[in-house]
Amino acid sequence: MAAFFSLIRRDLQLALRQSADLAMVLAFFVIAASLFPLAVGPDKVVLGRIAAGVVWVLALLSVMMSLDRLFHNDYQDGALELIVLGPQPLILVVLGKVLAYWLSTGLPLLILAPVIAMMLNLEEAAYLPLMTGLLLGTPVLALIGAVGAALSLGARRAGLLMALLVLPLYMPVLIFGVTAIEAATTGFNWQPHMLYLGAILAAALPLAPWAAASAIRQALD
């Protein structure tokens, strides 16, 4: 357990010291969001209609773009090999790295999301489902992303490949996240959709680190 927490501390420290990476992801999130009012026109009704979807898609893309930070640097400088050789179970190691990654990427995105939603004139009733959905959904994105990142270790054009692997698996999260907001703004109960997201998180929490760990193991063979 001590190793688990020290791994999280190490990854968080690394993320903070290379804070330019994090800043770039957040900047991408904001800049890409500000393209939409320019593209579809500043009409508040239209923007409010698409706001939730835009926030969700951009959160998804931001997570995906920073996925190479998860294992790739450690893979290149050999640290990953040492970590794998250590006595800790690899599944826990992956879980720790994903947790640190979520704390350093998912959480800032979560804090930034309502600001962007406001810029895009999201309805007031939609904020709570949006934030709950992101709170449950971004860890799933990080977990599934870890599988994609581990699978593409050592591949040519790993970034593009990762998008191809990960985006189809992100779709269910996106669907439930957005339908909850749809339900909330049309006056229906949005909690059931959150239960689905929670169920996906509960399934991904043990399964995704398992798949990622076996992918890492064969990448280091």
């Binding site: 050592g154 591949a155 040519r156 191809l164 992918a215």
Partner: peptide, 30 residues
């Protein structure tokens, strides 16, 4: 998309035999 990802992952490595296990994991996830 899963088929596309599978084929892309299979051919993404310089050593052609290297792609079969990552692709297999992806197929099982899918």
């Amino acid at each position: 998309f899963l088929y596309l990802g599978y084929i892309a992952l299979l051919n993404a490595f310089d050593d052609p035999a290297r792609g079969s296990k990552p692709a297999a994991i992806l197929a099982l996830v899918g």
